[in-house]
Design a protein around this nucleic acid. Structure first.
Length: 377
DNA sequence: CTAGGGTTAG
């Protein structure tokens, strides 16, 4: 077995690893170690050993999976051990490789290490372009150190003669939005244009999301119009933000019209779009439309996800359609898309109330077979 | 080997 597949095996052994809410007690038949019992040092050693291979070092995803897992377990010194050990390879002169390491320090919250790596790049004969600059900006944004994002953005380019680009601006705009400085964020669009950088669909998508989220619906519509006037084509994500804005502004029929508009443009509504509509109709108590959009979701080869089930199943229970609630709950379990056992519990509670104890235990059995923690139901 | 925006929750 190659070292790569050995590592993969280590990481795919426990499916309940994927989500915090899904880390549930295993049954006695499960001999595999629990997440907290994983021998992380062994993982680190294997990783370092595998890193000797140039082929292994090309695999971006295994680096990310490993680091995310260690970060979740708060094994920060091990992350450091893995990432620092990469410095001995000649790949360090490739900006792409270093970007990956900066990014990994960023998602681990080790932003000082990310900064240090960026500072060290010249020592590795590695050219620093706007891309590594942006990666470091993102690392500060990820750590919610927004002041530093702005400071770094304002000061660094002149120091190391890097030109900020649209991506840099998008990161800073996002940071301003997160700080609640929406107008400042908006003013950055003018600054971009002054510097000859055209705002993109990501720029507008970021702004739209922030304005709608903060209930500034009118301003949101103005931004949409501005985007159109600049002939920037909105992405599905842009539509998703606007649709969410309309739904929370109780303009759900306008939101529905947006679906046709998207389709006319050849854009495919995705699960975020459908979930928003389903949620909107559930909140309105409109079971027929909620079901309709659940059907639409499936009709357009789009898969329901945890959010979908979490939204619609409790709603169906509340409205008394326990047959469909149970059907969807089974589906969620089988697809491993049950985000919370509370969803299952509301179905079994409903079934018990109707005296359908047999169906309730059938559902519980299914949940147990998929190793969901249901002892407390 | 390379940087940026989105849903749920009592």
């Amino acid at each position: 077995m190659s070292s790569l597949s050995r590592l993969r095996g280590l990481f795919t052994s426990n499916p309940s690893f994927k989500s915090k809410t899904n880390i549930l007690k295993s049954t006695s038949t499960n001999k595999k170690p629990l997440p907290e019992e994983v021998d992380f040092q062994n993982v680190v050693n294997k990783f370092k050993e595998s890193s000797e291979s140039h082929e292994f070092r090309k695999k971006r995803s295994i680096y990310e999976t490993t680091v995310r897992r260690l970060a979740k377990a708060q094994k920060y010194s091990m992350i450091e051990e893995i990432l620092e050990s990469q410095k001995k390879y000649k790949d360090m002169s490739c900006e792409g490789f270093v970007i990956r390491l900066i990014y990994l320090y960023g998602i681990s919250g080790l932003v000082d290490h990310a900064q240090k790596l960026f500072d060290e790049m010249p020592q590795f004969d590695c050219e620093r372009t706007v891309k590594s600059f942006n990666t470091l900006l993102s690392a500060y944004a990820y750590a919610k150190n927004f002041d530093k994002v702005v400071e770094f953005f304002r000061e660094m380019p002149s120091k190391i003669s890097i030109q900020a680009n649209e991506v840099s601006y998008n990161i800073v705009i996002h940071a301003f939005c997160e700080m609640g400085s929406l107008d400042l964020a908006m003013s950055m669009v003018d600054e971009m244009e002054k510097n000859g950088i055209g705002p993109t669909f990501v720029t507008f998508g970021t702004l739209l999301d922030a304005f709608y989220k903060n209930s500034r619906y009118m301003d949101g519509e103005k931004i949409w119009a501005l985007m159109e006037s600049k002939n920037v084509e909105p992405s599905v994500r842009c539509y998703s933000s606007r649709l969410r804005g309309m739904v929370s502004d109780s303009r759900i029929s306008e939101a529905v019209e947006l679906i046709d508009e998207m389709r006319q443009k050849g854009l495919k509504p995705d699960v975020f779009i459908f979930n928003t509509l389903i949620k909107g109709f559930c909140d309105d108590g409109n079971m027929q439309e909620a079901k309709h959009w659940y059907d639409e979701l499936k009709k357009h080869d789009c898969s329901p996800d945890k959010i979908t089930y979490m939204t619609i199943v409790p709603f169906l229970c509340k409205e008394g359609d326990l047959d469909m609630a149970m059907e969807l709950c089974k589906e969620a379990i089988n697809r491993r898309s049950l985000a919370d056992v509370a969803v299952l519990k509301c179905v079994t509670d409903g079934l018990h109330k109707e005296g359908k104890t047999e169906k309730a235990s059938e559902l519980l059995k299914l949940g147990k077979s998929k190793k969901y923690q249901i002892d407390n139901i």
